[in-house]
């Protein structure tokens, strides 16, 4: 099947909105990792009433990475940080008129960048409630790991079989075919996301394979 970008994605790629840096931002965040191939930096200027007055992004990434950062910053601009926290990656995909499922993880990264920047602001203003590391917190993060060929997160796909947390050690058991070509990418994404959680010292990811039916 020919996987293509639609004209709206191309337009945002060619002429991205809100691209650049804010000098002396009120908050900032850099998410992603070189191993996965894309990184996004988000800068925020917050005004009275916790409203996002200005937002800028930088990107090391592909066309859809740049396009989703462009649309997500558009969506967040002028909103309160509470409202911005509620923007879903599916909304970004919808606003772009759709993305190939294999690229959904780009929009997740842009949303993660926005949320990380807002958390940075809450931390700086002494309002961040550090959540305690728990299986639920880990599961929340895993909702943001997309299985590329389906464009659906691995929790909804029931590929996460077990989450264990003990003294900063996180164990995650997955259920994928042993030779699933996307397994490496999924494991890398999990590592990247879980290592950002508070109190994580060690991550163990085990693929149990797919049981006999």
């Amino acid at each position: 099947m020919a996987i293509k970008y639609n004209p709206k994605v191309i337009e945002h790629f060619k002429n991205p909105h809100n691209q650049g840096v804010i000098e002396n931002p009120d908050a900032e965040a850099l998410v992603g990792s070189p191993a996965c191939g894309d990184q996004i930096a988000i800068y925020l200027k917050i005004g009275p009433g916790d409203v996002i007055e200005d937002i800028k992004f930088e990107s090391f990434g592909c066309a859809s990475n740049i396009a989703t950062a462009s649309i997500v910053t558009d969506l967040a601009k002028g909103k309160s940080i509470e409202e911005a926290m509620e923007i879903k990656w599916t909304k970004a995909v919808e606003e772009l008129g759709g993305l190939p499922p294999v690229k959904y993880h780009c929009s997740v990264l842009a949303i993660d960048g926005l949320r990380a920047a807002i958390r940075d602001y809450l931390r700086k203003t002494g309002r961040l409630k550090e959540e305690e590391l728990s299986p639920d917190l880990v599961r929340e993060e895993l909702y943001h790991v997309i299985y590329p060929p389906r464009g659906v997160d691995i929790v909804s796909l029931k590929r996460v079989k077990y989450i264990g947390v003990e003294e900063g050690k996180v164990r995650i058991e997955l259920s994928f075919e042993e030779d699933d070509p996307y397994l490496n990418e999924v494991v890398q994404e999990i590592r990247e996301k879980i290592s950002e959680l508070p109190g994580v010292h060690d991550i163990e990811i085990v693929n149990q394979g797919v049981g006999e039916h």
Binding site: G37, C62, P148, E185
Partner: peptide
């Protein structure tokens, strides 16, 4: 050589 252009997202 980018992972983004690889169908299995591998560099």
């Amino acid at each position: 050589g980018s992972a983004c252009a690889n169908p299995f997202l591998e560099a």
